[in-house]
């Protein structure tokens, strides 16, 4: 079945993970992850720190080499030994917890670097696109600044613009609000919500349960490098079936309203 014929809600898979394992120095961080992310779908990864969420995203973006299993992008295997990861990375966008903007470049140069150098987009076109994205995220007047003149929330919005300029097939968000002051979280989540409404395919590792519930189509609960439970936000947050999920949610939601 081709993507064109796919009925709504059963879109073609953009990302497919089959039995992905990864270990660092003998310690297994991912223990056989199976995951399917369809077009226009937002999948939230929740779980305690160290459960493997970040590693999983880094493996999908081919920043880490997996030990076993397969990861496919639009049906193409990306993790064949010896394959060049660069063309695949160009089709994905990754936003980091700590922004990782380039401090020696102005905001606009941060946003255009990947498009101009990686994708050979003409510089004028890249600038135009970058400026439009910055305007859209309320940063039009900050294009000539250096990143460390911006607040954390602004920096993270620049990082999202940077990942979006090349129109990735999927956006990978690695706890993008965890390093932000509480009052700045909202502006970043607002941007992501907007992207979701436009149909951007996303994998979102997050500690913001209410946000996951709100934005995600699917929620995966990870513990000890495994997906313990997966389902709609409704299922996971109101009727989790696994005791680990229940324990985790009880812990993080203690005192918090969702």
């Amino acid at each position: 079945m081709s993507a064109h014929q796919a009925p709504p809600g059963a879109n073609a898979p953009v990302l497919e993970l089959r039995g992905v394992t990864k270990s660092y120095e003998g310690q297994q961080v991912l223990k056989g992850i199976d995951l399917m992310v369809s077009e226009h779908q937002a999948v939230a990864l929740i779980g305690a720190s160290g459960s493997g969420k970040s590693t999983l995203l880094r493996c999908i973006d081919l920043l880490e080499e997996i030990d076993d299993g397969d990861i496919l992008l639009d049906g193409q295997p990306m993790t064949v030994p010896g394959i060049n990861p660069v063309p695949f990375r160009r089709r994905l966008g990754l936003v980091f917890q700590s922004f990782n903007l380039f401090p020696h470049m102005r905001v606009i140069e941060n946003v255009t670097l990947g498009a101009v150098r990686g994708q050979r987009m003409p510089a004028a076109q890249a600038r135009e696109g970058a400026q439009a994205l910055l305007e859209r995220f309320g940063l039009g007047d900050r294009a000539r600044e250096y990143p460390d003149r911006l607040s954390g929330g602004q920096q993270q919005r620049v990082a999202i613009a940077r990942a979006l300029l090349t129109k990735p097939r999927a956006l990978l968000l690695d706890e993008v609000t965890s390093a932000l002051d509480p009052e700045l979280v909202g502006e970043v989540l607002g941007v992501i919500r907007e992207l979701k409404e436009e149909g951007m395919t996303m994998v979102i590792a997050t500690h913001e349960m209410s946000f996951a519930r709100d934005v995600a189509d699917q929620v995966c609960f990870l513990e000890g490098g495994c997906i313990v439970e997966q389902g709609t936000p409704e299922q996971i947050f109101t009727a989790p079936s696994q005791p680990q999920t229940q324990r985790f949610l009880a812990r993080v939601l203690a005192g918090a309203t969702i």
């Binding site: 920043l63 660069v86 994905l92 980091f96 903007l101 380039f102 020696h104 670097l113 990686g118 090349t166």
Partner: peptide, 27 residues
């Protein structure tokens, strides 16, 4: 993480060195 961010943008390792790592190191 600077190198990681450059690679994630689709730069080749050589481009990451040239545009991201070496300029910062020299400064």
């Amino acid at each position: 993480s600077q190198g990681g961010a450059a690679l994630a943008l689709g730069l080749t390792p050589t481009q990451a060195l040239r545009h991201v790592i070496v300029p910062q190191a020299v400064r």
